[in-house]
Simulated scan of single mutants.
Amino acid sequence: MAACLQTLQDQGVIKRTCVLCCHPCEIECFGSCNHPVCYKCMTKLRILCQDNYCPVCRSCLEKVVYTDRVQPFEELDINSMHQCKTLPGLYFVSSESLYLCQQLLVHRCQICITKPTFKNFNNFLGHMKDTHKRYFCYLCIKHLKLFTHERRPYSKPDLNIHLKRGDSDNKSYKGHPVCKFCKKHYFDDDDLYLHLHNDHFSCHFCPADEYYDNYESLRAHFKSNHFLCEYDACADEKFVNAFSTDIDYKAHLALKHKHLLNRAEERRIRHIDIDLTYSRSNDSRTTGKNRRGDTYDR
């Protein structure tokens, strides 16, 4: 059955399935490696994502053919195919396949009856805002590689809901996370983590998911939860004057600031509290009897 199906696919009787979107390849696109992808996925990869590698074998494809019939790349006469200056490296067997590819990249208003098109995406955004009072999520625009017709317009209230809680028809999406310090939304948890890591502060003694708005907040945390040296030049230091244990803190004082300490403080830093807990064992090897026959622990 599988061999018969493959034969029919090779003969072009039935369409092969795109390995990316799992839809039938009405127009197949492939390069020298002969791994077919549908024209929508290939156009998105080449034009929107600027990715010139085969999604199957990761070979770099300098030339990609758009065709409606299965045929090995080596047997194709690329020089006789249709081309477009705005679509470098793409070759089209027919003018219809070129037209379909170009239509994917058109910025068309789906609300207007006349379905007008716009020169660029910014003009399209201005039209949607001024004419229809519809807006697009700026985070989705920045991070999601989508065709214009795939993007979702929102009213202002719906856009706020999208940012905070997500879309009602997409239960897997819970909104864009927000920084509790800046009150600004970020695309996903990874994007938020990069922001927190680069623009805020975390304690290198505590778990990594705890952040602080600025160093003054972190300094207060060091002082209340750890050990912070505020003697001499250490008062102006950052990070290096904080210690996780009392032993480390006292060792630092003895090494760097002993000349600033009085006798009571010197005695205090030489004193180390050790908390040891012993458990009594009932093992027969640790018990014995005294002269009166009473048992005792050795």
Rank of each mutant, 00 (worst) to 15 (best):
residue 6 Q to C: 08
residue 6 Q to I: 14
residue 11 Q to G: 13
residue 14 I to C: 03
residue 15 K to V: 08
residue 16 R to M: 14
residue 16 R to L: 14
residue 20 L to F: 04
residue 22 C to H: 15
residue 24 P to I: 15
residue 28 E to C: 15
residue 29 C to N: 08
residue 29 C to E: 03
residue 32 S to A: 12
residue 32 S to T: 09
residue 32 S to I: 14
residue 39 Y to G: 05
residue 39 Y to L: 14
residue 40 K to W: 09
residue 41 C to S: 10
residue 41 C to R: 07
residue 41 C to Y: 04
residue 43 T to H: 08
residue 48 L to D: 06
residue 48 L to V: 02
residue 48 L to H: 05
residue 51 D to H: 05
residue 53 Y to F: 14
residue 56 V to F: 07
residue 56 V to I: 13
residue 57 C to P: 06
residue 57 C to M: 10
residue 67 T to R: 10
residue 67 T to P: 02
residue 68 D to L: 10
residue 69 R to C: 09
residue 75 E to R: 05
residue 76 L to M: 09
residue 76 L to F: 08
residue 77 D to L: 05
residue 77 D to Y: 11
residue 81 M to C: 08
residue 82 H to V: 06
residue 86 T to Q: 11
residue 90 L to E: 08
residue 92 F to K: 12
residue 92 F to H: 09
residue 93 V to Y: 06
residue 95 S to R: 08
residue 98 L to A: 06
residue 98 L to Y: 00
residue 101 C to M: 01
residue 102 Q to N: 06
residue 105 L to A: 04
residue 105 L to K: 09
residue 112 C to V: 05
residue 117 T to W: 04
residue 117 T to I: 10
residue 118 F to D: 01
residue 121 F to T: 03
residue 123 N to T: 04
residue 124 F to A: 14
residue 126 G to L: 06
residue 127 H to D: 00
residue 130 D to E: 06
residue 131 T to K: 06
residue 132 H to D: 05
residue 138 Y to P: 07
residue 152 R to L: 00
residue 154 Y to D: 00
residue 166 G to P: 03
residue 169 D to I: 11
residue 169 D to F: 02
residue 170 N to P: 07
residue 170 N to L: 11
residue 174 K to T: 15
residue 176 H to N: 05
residue 177 P to L: 07
residue 178 V to T: 10
residue 178 V to Q: 13
residue 180 K to S: 15
residue 181 F to S: 01
residue 181 F to A: 02
residue 182 C to W: 03
residue 182 C to F: 09
residue 182 C to Y: 06
residue 183 K to E: 06
residue 184 K to A: 03
residue 196 L to R: 01
residue 202 S to Y: 15
residue 203 C to F: 07
residue 207 P to F: 15
residue 211 Y to F: 14
residue 214 N to K: 12
residue 215 Y to A: 07
residue 218 L to M: 10
residue 220 A to H: 12
residue 222 F to P: 00
residue 227 F to D: 00
residue 228 L to R: 00
residue 232 D to P: 00
residue 233 A to K: 06
residue 241 N to S: 04
residue 241 N to V: 00
residue 243 F to N: 02
residue 245 T to V: 03
residue 245 T to F: 04
residue 247 I to R: 11
residue 255 L to V: 05
residue 257 H to W: 02
residue 259 H to L: 11
residue 261 L to H: 02
residue 262 N to S: 04
residue 264 A to V: 08
residue 265 E to C: 09
residue 268 R to D: 12
residue 269 I to F: 00
residue 270 R to E: 15
residue 270 R to D: 13
residue 272 I to W: 01
residue 275 D to T: 02
residue 276 L to D: 00
residue 277 T to D: 07
residue 278 Y to W: 13
residue 278 Y to H: 07
residue 281 S to N: 04
residue 286 T to M: 12
residue 288 G to D: 10
residue 289 K to W: 13
residue 289 K to R: 15
residue 289 K to I: 11
residue 293 G to E: 11
residue 294 D to F: 15
